[in-house]
Amino acid sequence: MIDLIFISLAGMVTLGLQTTSMAFLVSSAYKPDLMLVLIVWAGLRLPFAMGAAFAFVAGVGVDTLSGSPLGLFGLIYALVCVACGYLGGVVRIEGRTGRTILVLVAALWTGVAILLARLLRGPIGFGWHVTGWIIAKALITTGAALVVFPCIDWARLGFSKLMGERRPVSRPTDYA
Protein backbone atom coordinates (compact mmCIF):
# COMPACT_ATOMS: atom_id res chain seq x y z
CA MET A 1 0.00 0.00 0.00
CA ILE A 2 2.83 2.36 0.92
CA ASP A 3 4.47 1.54 -2.41
CA LEU A 4 1.28 2.45 -4.19
CA ILE A 5 0.88 5.76 -2.35
CA PHE A 6 4.51 6.62 -2.92
CA ILE A 7 4.54 5.83 -6.63
CA SER A 8 1.26 7.73 -7.13
CA LEU A 9 2.68 10.81 -5.40
CA ALA A 10 5.98 10.48 -7.26
CA GLY A 11 4.07 10.17 -10.54
CA MET A 12 2.11 13.35 -9.89
CA VAL A 13 5.22 15.28 -8.87
CA THR A 14 7.09 14.02 -11.93
CA LEU A 15 4.24 14.96 -14.24
CA GLY A 16 4.15 18.41 -12.66
CA LEU A 17 7.90 18.88 -13.06
CA GLN A 18 7.84 17.51 -16.59
CA THR A 19 5.18 19.95 -17.76
CA THR A 20 6.46 23.03 -15.95
CA SER A 21 10.06 23.32 -14.77
CA MET A 22 11.75 21.28 -17.47
CA ALA A 23 10.97 23.91 -20.09
CA PHE A 24 13.19 26.35 -18.20
CA LEU A 25 16.21 24.05 -18.32
CA VAL A 26 16.35 22.90 -21.93
CA SER A 27 14.38 23.47 -25.10
CA SER A 28 11.14 21.57 -25.43
CA ALA A 29 12.45 19.12 -28.02
CA TYR A 30 15.39 18.05 -25.85
CA LYS A 31 13.93 18.01 -22.37
CA PRO A 32 14.61 14.80 -20.43
CA ASP A 33 11.85 12.26 -19.93
CA LEU A 34 11.66 12.17 -16.13
CA MET A 35 8.60 9.96 -16.23
CA LEU A 36 10.58 7.30 -18.07
CA VAL A 37 13.19 7.36 -15.29
CA LEU A 38 10.41 6.85 -12.75
CA ILE A 39 8.99 4.00 -14.83
CA VAL A 40 12.39 2.27 -14.92
CA TRP A 41 12.65 2.79 -11.16
CA ALA A 42 9.18 1.30 -10.70
CA GLY A 43 10.12 -1.65 -12.91
CA LEU A 44 13.16 -2.41 -10.80
CA ARG A 45 11.80 -1.66 -7.35
CA LEU A 46 8.06 -2.29 -7.30
CA PRO A 47 6.05 -5.51 -7.56
CA PHE A 48 5.55 -6.48 -11.19
CA ALA A 49 1.80 -5.85 -11.50
CA MET A 50 1.86 -2.60 -9.54
CA GLY A 51 4.76 -1.27 -11.60
CA ALA A 52 3.13 -2.17 -14.91
CA ALA A 53 -0.23 -0.72 -13.89
CA PHE A 54 1.41 2.48 -12.71
CA ALA A 55 3.44 2.71 -15.92
CA PHE A 56 0.30 2.42 -18.04
CA VAL A 57 -1.64 5.01 -16.01
CA ALA A 58 1.34 7.40 -15.99
CA GLY A 59 1.69 6.93 -19.73
CA VAL A 60 -1.95 7.80 -20.30
CA GLY A 61 -1.39 10.87 -18.11
CA VAL A 62 1.53 11.87 -20.33
CA ASP A 63 -0.60 11.23 -23.42
CA THR A 64 -3.18 13.75 -22.25
CA LEU A 65 -0.44 16.36 -21.82
CA SER A 66 1.27 15.60 -25.07
CA GLY A 67 0.51 15.50 -28.76
CA SER A 68 0.57 11.70 -28.86
CA PRO A 69 -2.54 9.61 -29.53
CA LEU A 70 -4.13 8.49 -26.29
CA GLY A 71 -2.58 5.24 -25.11
CA LEU A 72 0.72 5.44 -27.00
CA PHE A 73 2.84 6.44 -24.02
CA GLY A 74 0.72 4.15 -21.82
CA LEU A 75 1.72 1.22 -23.98
CA ILE A 76 5.36 2.24 -24.36
CA TYR A 77 5.84 2.86 -20.64
CA ALA A 78 4.06 -0.36 -19.67
CA LEU A 79 6.37 -2.31 -21.99
CA VAL A 80 9.40 -0.52 -20.53
CA CYS A 81 8.27 -1.31 -17.00
CA VAL A 82 7.58 -4.96 -17.80
CA ALA A 83 10.97 -5.30 -19.51
CA CYS A 84 12.74 -3.68 -16.58
CA GLY A 85 10.89 -5.90 -14.12
CA TYR A 86 11.80 -8.98 -16.13
CA LEU A 87 15.44 -7.95 -16.43
CA GLY A 88 15.55 -7.09 -12.74
CA GLY A 89 14.31 -10.61 -11.97
CA VAL A 90 16.70 -12.40 -14.33
CA VAL A 91 19.82 -10.29 -14.06
CA ARG A 92 20.91 -8.59 -10.89
CA ILE A 93 21.00 -4.94 -11.90
CA GLU A 94 22.96 -3.18 -9.24
CA GLY A 95 24.87 0.04 -9.14
CA ARG A 96 24.83 3.14 -11.21
CA THR A 97 26.20 1.62 -14.42
CA GLY A 98 23.51 -1.03 -14.77
CA ARG A 99 20.72 1.44 -14.09
CA THR A 100 22.22 3.99 -16.46
CA ILE A 101 22.45 1.48 -19.31
CA LEU A 102 18.88 0.40 -18.62
CA VAL A 103 17.58 3.99 -18.76
CA LEU A 104 19.57 4.64 -21.96
CA VAL A 105 18.10 1.57 -23.65
CA ALA A 106 14.61 2.46 -22.42
CA ALA A 107 14.96 6.03 -23.71
CA LEU A 108 16.19 4.85 -27.11
CA TRP A 109 13.33 2.34 -27.30
CA THR A 110 10.83 5.06 -26.43
CA GLY A 111 12.17 7.30 -29.20
CA VAL A 112 12.13 4.52 -31.77
CA ALA A 113 8.62 3.43 -30.73
CA ILE A 114 7.27 6.96 -31.08
CA LEU A 115 8.96 7.31 -34.44
CA LEU A 116 7.41 4.04 -35.64
CA ALA A 117 3.99 5.15 -34.39
CA ARG A 118 4.38 8.39 -36.32
CA LEU A 119 5.52 6.59 -39.44
CA LEU A 120 2.32 4.57 -39.39
CA ARG A 121 0.31 7.80 -39.61
CA GLY A 122 2.23 9.40 -42.46
CA PRO A 123 5.63 10.51 -43.74
CA ILE A 124 7.83 12.20 -41.17
CA GLY A 125 10.93 13.06 -43.17
CA PHE A 126 13.17 10.48 -41.58
CA GLY A 127 16.83 11.36 -41.69
CA TRP A 128 19.96 11.93 -39.66
CA HIS A 129 18.32 14.86 -37.90
CA VAL A 130 15.71 12.46 -36.47
CA THR A 131 18.28 9.81 -35.51
CA GLY A 132 20.46 12.45 -33.88
CA TRP A 133 17.46 13.86 -32.05
CA ILE A 134 16.49 10.46 -30.62
CA ILE A 135 20.07 9.73 -29.51
CA ALA A 136 20.53 13.21 -28.01
CA LYS A 137 17.24 13.01 -26.14
CA ALA A 138 18.09 9.53 -24.85
CA LEU A 139 21.48 10.73 -23.63
CA ILE A 140 19.90 13.74 -21.90
CA THR A 141 17.33 11.50 -20.19
CA THR A 142 20.14 9.14 -19.12
CA GLY A 143 22.10 12.07 -17.73
CA ALA A 144 19.05 13.20 -15.79
CA ALA A 145 18.59 9.64 -14.50
CA LEU A 146 22.02 9.79 -12.85
CA VAL A 147 20.59 12.46 -10.56
CA VAL A 148 16.92 11.51 -10.47
CA PHE A 149 17.28 7.78 -9.74
CA PRO A 150 19.14 8.26 -6.41
CA CYS A 151 16.68 11.05 -5.58
CA ILE A 152 13.72 8.66 -5.99
CA ASP A 153 15.53 6.04 -3.86
CA TRP A 154 16.17 8.65 -1.22
CA ALA A 155 12.58 9.90 -1.34
CA ARG A 156 11.25 6.34 -1.07
CA LEU A 157 13.48 5.69 1.96
CA GLY A 158 12.32 8.92 3.58
CA PHE A 159 8.70 8.13 2.79
CA SER A 160 8.98 4.68 4.32
CA LYS A 161 10.49 6.21 7.51
CA LEU A 162 7.73 8.80 7.56
CA MET A 163 5.08 6.11 7.32
CA GLY A 164 6.83 3.97 9.95
CA GLU A 165 7.44 1.11 7.57
CA ARG A 166 9.83 -1.60 8.79
CA ARG A 167 10.60 -3.05 5.38
CA PRO A 168 12.04 -0.22 3.33
CA VAL A 169 11.29 -1.53 -0.18
CA SER A 170 9.25 -4.19 -1.84
CA ARG A 171 12.19 -5.55 -3.71
CA PRO A 172 15.31 -4.79 -1.64
CA THR A 173 17.93 -4.93 -4.35
CA ASP A 174 20.37 -2.06 -4.34
CA TYR A 175 18.88 0.70 -2.32
CA ALA A 176 21.36 3.53 -2.30
Partner: peptide, 13 residues
Amino acid sequence: IGEDAIGWYKVYF
Protein backbone atom coordinates in the same frame (compact mmCIF):
# COMPACT_ATOMS: atom_id res chain seq x y z
CA ILE B 1 -0.34 27.87 -21.55
CA GLY B 2 1.83 24.86 -22.13
CA GLU B 3 3.73 22.65 -24.49
CA ASP B 4 4.24 18.95 -25.06
CA ALA B 5 5.01 17.17 -21.80
CA ILE B 6 7.91 15.09 -23.08
CA GLY B 7 8.88 16.97 -26.22
CA TRP B 8 8.41 14.23 -28.85
CA TYR B 9 5.54 16.15 -30.45
CA LYS B 10 5.39 19.80 -31.55
CA VAL B 11 2.34 20.85 -29.61
CA TYR B 12 1.08 23.90 -27.72
CA PHE B 13 -1.83 23.98 -25.31
